[in-house]
């Protein structure tokens, strides 16, 4: 049982605040992804959980035990590093066995576990090699095998796939998902890649500027972003935003009356490009660029002087210069407070 509880963890480097009092609870066996752009504090948070960095304040609990004053070796964790950190002077076998030897396990047990995890990661034929004789993908496998072999209560992963090329990343992503699901280990996984986060996570915690903006299931984060930043960061192409004015009869967007929230002073209207359809009473959109992407059509338009993208059926006939009228699908428009960036319910 290894629930991770983070209470009010903060970190400052001199005058720079990397983390502002972060709270997060990761359930036992849950797979949580920390997602954010570089410099958002996600790696710092992971390193504080690992014990590689000390927090300026707050508490870290793993499996019901407060660990923030313990060195990494006493926290019951295993970690996979971005650059793999496979020991160059040891064979693959010895790399995987390293942590087990530190626990003084009997040789037979060490061999059994090394062979089992090597088989799991499909590197059993590489056990005698050194890191210099391995490809990036193989090193990656060794790094994961090394963590799994320790049978830790928590696995921490710091951008483990970011150094692989695109195709390999896709393959490893699926494989990792299967293996980690089977191992049923609590996992915290740091990445800046939203697709990776969506595909792997039970829950995504989106971070920005040292805050966790939203921690929820992937589809919830995608459909109902809690903050403007989340909507803008997740989704490719990103969400469209248009300023809304409170007119006589309600909210107006690009001169068009739109049904919006009751409350709020200054709001932004937002909609994902794929949630738009041509409609008689839609937002007037002047088509600037049309990109046929195969499965669909990406149309970049101008709506009342703002850039605006829509993804349309690939057989829609649109040309540059056309005037489209685009309306959001039922229930897909979102509203954000212009001042705070928080989402405003309708």
């Amino acid at each position: 049982m290894a629930e991770i509880v983070i209470k009010g963890v903060a970190k400052t480097f001199g005058a720079f605040t990397a983390l502002h009092s972060v709270d997060l609870t990761v359930a036992d066996r849950e797979f949580v992804v920390l997602l954010g752009a570089s410099g958002c504090g996600k790696t710092t948070l992971l390193r504080i959980i690992a014990g590689l960095e000390s927090a300026s304040g707050g508490e870290v609990w793993i499996g019901g035990r407060r660990v923030d004053h313990l060195p990494p070796r006493q926290r019951g964790i295993a970690m996979v590093f971005q650059n793999y950190a496979v020991f160059p002077h040891l064979t693959v076998f010895e790399n995987i066995a390293f942590g087990l030897r530190m626990q003084n396990l009997p040789m037979a047990e060490i061999t059994r576990r090394v062979e089992r995890t090597a088989e799991l990661m499909h590197i059993e034929q590489l056990l005698k090699r050194y890191s210099g004789q391995l490809s990036g993908g193989q090193r990656q496998r060794v790094a994961v095998a090394r963590a799994l072999a320790m049978e830790p209560s928590v696995i921490l992963m710091d951008e483990p796939l970011s150094n692989l090329d695109a195709l390999l990343r896709l393959e490893m992503r699926a494989e990792l998902k299967g293996i980690l699901a089977e191992s049923q280990t609590t996992t915290i996984y740091v990445t800046h890649d939203q697709v990776e986060a969506m595909s792997l996570a039970d829950r995504i915690a989106v971070m920005q500027g040292g805050h966790i903006l939203q921690a929820a299931e992937p589809i919830e984060v995608y459909r109902n972003p809690a903050a403007r930043f989340v909507g803008a960061f997740i989704g490719n192409p990103p969400m469209n935003f248009l300023p809304a004015n409170r007119g006589a009869g309600g909210w107006e967007v690009a001169g068009l009356p739109v049904l919006g929230p009751e409350s709020g002073e200054a709001l932004e209207f937002a909609v994902r490009p794929e949630d738009l359809r041509p409609a008689a009473k839609g937002l007037p959109a002047h088509v600037k660029i049309v990109e046929p992407l195969g499965p669909h059509l990406l149309v970049t338009c101008d709506v009342a002087g703002h850039g605006f993208r829509a993804i349309l059926e690939s057989d829609t006939s649109v040309r540059t210069g056309d005037l489209l009228h685009l309306a959001p699908l039922e229930g897909r428009a979102r509203w954000f407070d212009l001042a705070t960036g928080h989402s405003v319910p309708v």
């Binding site: 964790i77 970690m79 530190m102």
Partner: peptide, 9 residues
């Protein structure tokens, strides 16, 4: 750091 997480002082 990897060695620390694997049980080393």
């Amino acid at each position: 750091e990897a060695a620390w997480t694997m049980g080393c002082t």
